[in-house]
Design a protein around this nucleic acid. Structure first.
Length: 261
DNA sequence: ATCCAGGGGGATT
DNA sequence: AATCCCCATGGA
């Protein structure tokens, strides 16, 4: 498979638990801490694990070719050549996108970093320390989360942690996407947008199309003559899923990047 | 000071 | 189904 542009993928807004350490990247996910260089050579994890996390099996050349037929996507595709949608840990991804509600990437990153430092296991790779996401059983102190700056998301996280501990995620990976989505939406703090993010970034449902404020703006601007369509975000989502089919998730990443300027 | 940020939930119309 | 409001916090 062709090389993965590590930083493009890590910095695309789908994942928050990474940082640059000199020439390498430190990544904390799936209960591990490991390093990769710009050619995805790992320290502290197997090459197979890292290739899977980075979805090296995705045919990005083919995806880019197919989506390049869409004029709006050409520029971001060129700029993000080789971007992959990661295979994240579901619980970890849930925490990240519940935290993301009405927030922004710098703050989300800081919130999650504080959470992991305070409640997550501390690991070490070749002398480099770092923390991973706390287990659901460790996320139960709402007051602490509020002190860490999570605001109204604190309760959602604590309540969802209890549901997950109780087994709410069990078997979701085997469900059809629509049913998995319904089940995710039952979790506190998880609406359609967050559910779609988890489906896309953790459950390999590449046909998912999360609609956030930026996607909404760019879609309305480019496809709906600047007017909000009947049915709101649901209409935008169905429009995109219909137009991009099994690659809607990738299309969404390119639209998001385009709207990020 | 006011607005807005990868929203969700509940009530009202 | 559309709209309003509230939920905290921080940066512009």
């Amino acid at each position: 498979m062709n090389p993965v542009p590590v930083e493009v993928t890590l910095a695309s807004g789908q994942f928050f638990r990474w940082r640059r350490t000199g020439p390498r990247f430190a990544i904390a996910t799936h209960g591990r801490l490991f390093l990769v260089d710009d050619r995805l050579r790992p320290e502290g994890a197997t090459a197979d694990f890292v290739r899977r996390f980075f979805s090296s099996d995705h045919d990005s050349a083919g995806i880019e070719r197919r989506l390049s037929r869409e004029p709006v996507l050409r520029e971001p595709i060129r700029r993000l050549r080789g971007l992959r949608i990661l295979r994240q840990d579901p619980w970890e991804c849930l925490v990240a996108f519940i935290t993301s509600a009405a927030s922004n990437i710098p703050r989300i990153t800081r919130n999650l970093d504080d959470l992991c430092r305070r409640l997550g296991p501390e690991l070490r790779v070749n002398g480099t320390p770092g923390n991973t996401t706390p287990s659901p059983s460790a996320v139960k102190d709402e007051a602490l989360l509020r002190r860490l700056g999570f605001g109204f998301r604190a309760r959602y996280l604590v309540d969802t942690a209890r549901e997950v501990q109780r087994g709410m995620l069990r078997g979701i990976e085997k469900l059809p996407t629509a049913e998995a989505r319904d089940r995710l939406c039952r979790l506190p703090g998880v609406g359609e947008k967050v559910a779609d993010c988890v489906l896309l970034f953790a459950y390999e449902r590449l046909e998912s199309f999360p609609v956030d404020v930026r996607i909404r703006r760019v879609m309305i601007d480019r496809y709906f003559q600047g007017r909000r369509p009947r049915g709101g975000d649901r209409t935008l989502r169905r429009f995109a899923m219909d137009r991009f089919g099994p690659l809607a998730g990738y299309a969404q990443q390119y639209l998001y990047a385009r709207a990020r300027l």
